[in-house]
Design a binder for these strands. Structure first.
Lengths: 204, 204, 204, 204
DNA sequence: CATGAATGAGCTTTCATTCAT
DNA sequence: CATGAATGAAAGCTCATTCAT
């Protein structure tokens, strides 16, 4: 009795539940997935869920946090290398879940939810700010090295780059029969042309 | 004589309900909005809704159809003018609902729904196919006139351009405090550089 | 304007609607069939139904009345001939809707409804009384002619005979793969033995 | 230790609910009784019903199953004794719910439902098959002992006997003021004459 | 820690009925 | 006569959440 047992195990279970929830959310969306679904998937009883999360919304929040943190971390480890443009291209390529339509759908769900659910919105924005800081620094480095157009405002350009990833996710849903290799290739072309210092005699 | 009372009025009411539904969906999403909400918004009784739509899903479908048709039509009327690149820029600019976060959220909801709801998915894809045909033709015209890079595959480039619009909608949600003018400007730069024939001596 | 037009046509339409209702009730039962179903089947508008019947219950009542009257009339015309037992056998044979499972189901529905719905119950009982009077008279005739066992109380025996018809209807539902010819034959045997004067030296 | 809390209690509650449902169905019929009625009668909340039954239809099915099994079991224990005809008479007498009009109505409802609802129909037929097997065996025994007419096909005669019970239930509804003792007595006469070996010099 | 019984509000949908035209 | 728009109660069912054990 009365054992304050193992906060480690507690956290482990929490993560397991979160992963189960993630699978449910991917399959059915935030609203479509029920706590029953999640409990079944996590193999726990309906009541027990509330030992780990105070409400369904708390799960959604935690999910958003973890997904976004993960995305940011992924980005942080990818965005490396001597050539900054190449680094960006890699970021974009790996950011688009080429053959994970449900993961893409979940991100769109999350964005839609953000526009309506202040808590989730806050998480998203905070995370976005971090990502942008990270990317903007990388951009500036590229500009210093002459690899990237000096006229681009790093902060704004960064938003655009992130939007390209979101847009590519949407693209995969809009046309699932699309040849993803070709599309990604062309997206990389677009980004290349966007970031690189324009040629001398270009008439824009 | 003069019996068959007014299929016109019927259609009018249907549209009114659809608009009410649209407002609800923008506010709460497809799943979050209830038929009760919609009826209240449309000021009709709960039973009467089913005089006009056979199910909530039918409303969602009709909504998706009308929204997407509207978007396509808007695009059709916007994509005109002597300079094709300029036409595209206008398309993009007007395509992004700069200060309509709920409309943007609805589109993302629709995309997420498309990935899970086959009926909605079918509508989205059919519509997307039409839009791409239209845009691809415009692109080819531009290529004939030498305004657009001949090396771009029109079909793939079109998908990319559409993805930019979707991405921009996401951007507005990710960072509502963004200066939209600046972002749009930079997006236009990106598109310009993407589409225009690259300068002679450019080293990519 | 202001024409008190044709009570004949009115009655005709009423009968048409009643027949349509009959079809619906056979298909779906009294509770399962909706006024919409009936209107669709009768090809009239939902509101117009109430020109002919004041409520769904009124339709059910009229239906019960017409069905039962029909059954009684049918019985009246069948129960004829020199040999009374033969006449009864014919009554029974034609009373069982051998290959009309939905008509049989409807009769059982009507009986169940009778036990709960006083109005329908009253109709059923009134009708049953009439039928029994008719059959009891026939029975008495048979007894006078020495064709039927004199020890049978005509009133009670009549109830039993009617119950045999109801039971046969249930039998058709209980076992649809039954050979109806054989069953009917055996039922007739049972009735014969029941009605006929028992042989002299029989040891019961 | 001692976890897995009581599948016994679960089953108990299930039976309680089933009995409550039974009362409702008797009062209002399968279609007339609502899940709300049943919940109120069982003193549980509307949602909780679905902890024990997956749908209203599942309740109807379980009810049909239990009622019919009960009837069959009852029959099995009644159909005993040295004289087979007497055994049959007892079966019939106890099979007719003389003073339980609502139970009789429920059986007719069940038969009507069987003709339309395939699930219920299947249950009824399976049960009927079992009952007939049992009764047919008894009949054959009687034939071996010379108590029952050898010319009767046991399978067909069995169907007839069951139909007599169903018919008697209908009789109770058709004429509630009937003297049940007299009717049952006459029904028993009919069955006696039907089953017994006919006397030598009988002229059929 | 963990279960699953229990709740009650709310969901989508159907239905008998009324009424303006 | 006839239509079909309109109503509102009620149906079957789901869901997030709580609580006794």
């Amino acid at each position: 009795m009365m054992r304050k047992l193992d906060p480690v195990k507690h956290e482990e279970k929490r993560q397991q539940i979160l992963q189960a929830a993630s699978r449910c959310f991917m399959r059915d969306g935030f609203r479509g997935a029920s706590t029953s679904n999640i409990c079944a998937e996590a193999k726990i009883s309906p009541g027990h869920l509330y030992h780990y999360f105070s409400s369904k919304e708390a799960i959604v929040r935690a999910m958003a946090e973890s997904r976004l943190a993960q995305a940011a971390e992924h980005l942080g480890t990818t965005a490396r290398g001597p050539d900054v443009v190449t680094a960006f291209l890699e970021v974009i390529e790996s950011g688009v879940g080429v053959r994970e339509p449900s993961a893409n759908a979940l991100m769109l769900d999350l964005l839609a939810e953000s526009a309506r659910n202040p808590a989730v919105g806050g998480i998203l924005r905070e995370n976005h700010r971090e990502m942008r800081t990270l990317l903007a620094d990388l951009l500036r480095t590229g500009q210093e090295r002459g690899q990237i157009d000096l006229t681009l405002d790093p902060d704004v350009a960064t938003s655009i780059l992130v939007s390209f990833v979101d847009g590519a996710k949407a693209m995969m849903i809009r046309d699932p029969d699309l040849n993803p290799a070709k599309s990604i290739e062309m997206l990389k072309t677009a980004i290349s042309r966007f970031l690189r210092a324009p040629a001398v005699a270009n008439s824009e």
